[in-house]
């Protein structure tokens, strides 16, 4: 229980660093236009559904437009929102460039634009803020948990299962993780190799770590995603190592299978990125309309899951 308190302390510190205080205001009816990229993946569809559901519960009149993977469709949607005189526009941009003109039109019409998910290169003065998952933050969170879990150890050597080289998820998670463990002298990153976000890759990289390093000297493994960590668990078991006990594990994504591993006592913790960005988006709109100033980036808050609640969460997910 002491470690849990310590974790809370660290989390509070990090939240303070980020300064991401978000307030929820009274629920007046407002009209918001939402231009989505399309419905190319299951994740995208879930994202859209969450946006619509959240709008209903918050008394928001949401005008939804599916861009069908075409920027011109999204621009046309924005123009139609402007013509309809909505209170605010949420754009999930398909691409980063080519938005300045239509943003200017919105600004001239006095309608604020909020970016969600992917980024844009437009002049920051043309839109209010961006609500997005923050990979750096996820890395920090994973490191913060490791710091609490190893607070009573003198030295903890960590190996990292790096994502696909060049992907922003891998770069940012590595950055967030590295800058946080730097704050704790007992944490040291001793090896990092790319497992391409796949189970096979994670297993192969972990095998090579166990060969090139003394397995007894490895204290923890950080996986840029759960899949690589699941592969690494296989590698550890085959090398006669008890994952989660001999070597601590933490990874990102909170996919269903990692809960099974946690239930089996093979994994310690996973970082969840809430798929519901609607909460932050609508809250940001309301506070902006209330005259508040907002930071340039509003991260979607993350949560962590541990072994003790794994069974419960897994049942909730697979049951519902």
């Amino acid at each position: 229980m002491r470690s849990r308190q310590l974790l809370l302390a660290v989390l509070v510190t990090i939240f303070a660093i980020l300064g991401s205080a978000v307030l929820v205001h009274a629920q007046d009816q407002i009209t918001v236009g939402f231009a989505q990229t399309g419905s190319e993946s299951g994740w995208r569809t879930a994202f859209t559904e969450a946006m619509i559901a959240e709008a209903e519960s918050q008394n928001i009149n949401l005008i939804f437009s599916d861009g069908q993977q075409k920027q011109e469709n999204q621009i046309a949607a924005l123009r139609s929102f402007i013509a309809q005189g909505v209170d605010a526009i949420i754009l999930a941009p398909l691409v980063e460039t080519g938005w300045d003109e239509v943003f200017q039109e919105a600004q001239d019409a006095g309608i604020p634009v909020f970016i969600i998910d992917r980024n844009v290169t437009a002049d920051p003065s043309l839109y209010v803020t961006r609500i997005a998952s923050d990979f750096v933050y996820e890395g920090r969170l994973a490191a913060a948990w490791l710091a609490t879990a190893t607070a009573n150890r003198e030295q903890c050597n960590i190996v990292e299962l790096y994502g696909t080289v060049g992907s922003s998820a891998a770069i940012d998670r590595a950055t967030g993780f590295a800058e946080t463990i730097a704050l704790f002298p007992n944490l040291e990153l001793v090896a990092s190799q790319s497992g391409d976000f796949t189970r096979t890759g994670g297993k192969e990289v972990m095998e090579s770590f166990l060969n090139s390093l003394d397995p007894a000297s490895i204290c923890a493994v950080f996986g840029h995603n759960d899949d690589m960590l699941i592969g690494a668990i296989e590698a550890m078991k085959e090398a006669g190592i008890d994952p989660a006990d001999d070597i601590l594990t933490v990874s990102v994504d909170a996919i269903d299978d990692i809960f099974v591993s946690m239930m089996n006592g093979d994994a310690n913790a996973t970082v969840l990125l809430s798929p519901n960005m609607g909460v932050q988006a609508y809250a940001a709109i309301r506070s902006y309309l209330a005259g508040e100033t907002l930071p340039a980036l509003i991260p979607v808050p993350s949560a962590m899951y541990f072994q003790d609640t794994a069974a419960e969460e897994y049942a909730a997910r697979t049951g519902g």
Partner: peptide, 16 residues
């Protein structure tokens, strides 16, 4: 082999 190795078939990444 690759499927048995990770006890799972990863349609996106297996043999990529």
């Amino acid at each position: 082999i690759v499927t048995a190795d990770i006890k799972g078939a990863d349609a996106n990444n297996a043999g990529l």
